[in-house]
């Protein structure tokens, strides 16, 4: 078992966002989490690396219960479990290459020059090597996101959390990102957890999908399960209909 989430609850003030979410994710799986805006998709994956703490429940990452670890104890977990944030979060005082070089410099003990050299190779994998010396503010959202993916992958994590990796990407880059994620799973055995609204990604690369609704898992299953479900809420979501039983 790569990841196990057991009955996680989380509120912010009055807002009860997660009301008992349980999921199990296998090693090497490409697992999608879908659901309407504000349902708590970002919240749940932030729990996995201890950026948020549950009010109740347990989260296991490769067997380690992370919800009660101290910040320092979380560092080894975060080296194995990388995250690409929803809004790419590149450090804007640095160039793209320096962004990617930072984890190498900090954790691989590389000098700046060695790290930059490797960073350029990493940027090439997401076809961003031409922008190595650009500052993030000079790039569009989609390009920033690709750099952020390169940065998250520098330490060769065994689990990667992608928060909407294809949102704001053009269709071609989006499909390339899908291919990259699938390749990570198939070739390198990485466990990928992808939060996404992108139906094309979902129905091309997902092994399993969980749909969150009203703070719990509404449906968990394969692409086929989602295509053939009778659940009207799920149908409305994946068919993208404005009218239906779904409450937002």
């Amino acid at each position: 078992m790569s990841i196990r989430i057991v009955d996680v609850h989380k509120s912010f003030g009055e807002k009860h966002i997660l009301r008992g979410v349980s999921l199990e994710i296998e090693p090497g799986e490409c697992f999608f989490i879908i659901g309407a805006s504000g349902v708590g998709k970002s919240v749940i994956i932030k729990h996995l690396i201890g950026l948020l703490r549950p009010d109740k429940g347990e989260l296991y990452v490769e067997g380690v219960e992370v919800s009660k670890l101290s910040e320092k104890e979380l560092y080894p977990v975060r080296m194995k479990c990388a995250m690409v944030f929803q809004n790419s979060t590149l450090f804007d005082s640095m160039t793209c290459a320096e962004n990617v070089a930072l984890p190498l410099r900090k954790h691989r003990g590389m000098s700046m020059n060695e790290a930059l050299k490797e960073a350029n190779e990493r940027l090439a994998a997401v076809r961003m090597e031409r922008f190595a010396d650009a500052k993030p503010a000079e790039l569009g959202d989609g390009m920033q996101k690709r750099v952020a993916i390169a940065r998250a992958l520098t330490l060769d994590p065994s689990i990667v959390l992608f928060d909407e990796p294809t949102t704001s990407l053009d269709p071609v880059s989006a499909r390339r990102t899908d291919a990259l994620i699938r390749e990570l799973c198939d070739r390198y055995g990485v466990t990928a957890i992808v939060v996404s609204h992108d139906l094309t990604s979902i129905f091309s690369i997902a092994d399993r999908i969980a749909m969150l609704y009203n703070g719990t898992v509404r449906l968990l299953g394969t692409q086929q399960d989602f295509k053939t479900t009778d659940d009207e809420v799920v149908r409305q979501f994946i068919e993208g209909r404005a009218e239906g039983p779904m409450q937002l």
């Binding site: 932030k46 690396i49 950026l51 910040e71 979380l74 560092y75 080894p76 975060r78 080296m79 990388a82 995250m83 944030f85 809004n87 979060t89 590149l90 450090f91 804007d92 930072l102 984890p103 900090k106 954790h107 940065r151 330490l155």
Partner: peptide
């Protein structure tokens, strides 16, 4: 506020 501090934490950088 742009989550860059959390991004550092996520990269295991204090």
């Amino acid at each position: 506020v742009t989550d860059q501090v959390d991004a550092l934490r996520a990269l295991s950088i204090d």
